[in-house]
């Protein structure tokens, strides 16, 4: 699921307009962004199951997607954000980064370790919603609808009122443009993920 993660960032931005959207978008995918070089170098691996379609994978991301590893990454990201944009933004960004692990916990098969490197061979976590693709896709659609609509409403609200903002029409136009591009990318990312494109 990557559309679902982006949708969370859109929803958080709607409620916290002071935090830059780019940081939330990057933050919500940070675990997977760090996963990419580790995957390329063979430190973390992935094996497909079934026909290798939507969600048909067991991901051995034992460092980036371990509970403690994800918490550590979230805390570091939160500290950096807090240093740049203030303490509240730091808490928000740390939460957004960790939200990735929470959503993955819901959809992943039992492949999420508790400690980095699966230290201690503790039980692996994952509720496995990916085993029911229709339910998993429905969850992503729901997240997109909530995140997209909250972002659209908050963007328009940021344009202010026509009688108070001299540049109201320009601001409103930009808010609509930003919302439309956001909605299109959310839908496109879900479609490509669902069809296994890329």
């Amino acid at each position: 699921m990557f559309a679902g993660h982006f949708a969370v960032a859109a929803a958080v931005k709607a409620k916290n307009p002071q935090v830059p959207l780019w940081s939330l978008m990057l933050g919500t995918q940070l675990l997977d962004v760090i996963f990419v070089p580790l995957f390329v170098s063979g430190v973390e691996t992935m094996e497909t199951v079934g026909s290798a379609g939507y969600g048909e994978a067991v991901i051995h991301a034992d460092y980036t997607h371990s509970l403690m590893g994800a918490l550590l990454i979230a805390i570091v990201a939160g500290i950096l954000a807090g240093y740049r944009w203030g303490r509240r933004a730091g808490y928000i960004l740390a939460s957004v980064v960790f939200s990735h692990w929470i959503l993955d916990l819901v959809v992943h098969r039992r492949d999420l370790p508790i400690l980095p490197g699966n230290l201690g061979d503790l039980p692996l976590l994952g509720f496995g919603l990916w085993q029911w693709p229709a339910a998993s896709i429905a969850l992503e659609v729901l997240l997109i609808l909530i995140g997209g609509s909250l972002y659209f409403r908050s963007s328009l609200a940021r344009a202010g009122r026509a009688d108070l903002n001299p540049g109201y029409h320009q601001t409103k136009g930009r808010a609509i443009m930003a919302s439309c591009v956001m909605a299109a990318l959310l839908v496109l990312s879900l479609v490509t993920d669902t069809l296994g494109i890329g």
């Binding site: 978008m25 940021r158 930009r174 930003a178």
Partner: peptide, 30 residues
């Protein structure tokens, strides 16, 4: 591949478009 593309698009394109909303109101964008 599509993952990297979407991270870039959301981070750069959406981030830039969103920041323009505040710029048009004369607000400081960090």
């Amino acid at each position: 591949m599509s993952f990297i593309l979407f991270v870039l698009l959301f981070t750069v394109l959406c981030g830039w478009l969103d920041a323009r909303i505040d710029v048009s109101q004369g607000k400081d964008v960090k």
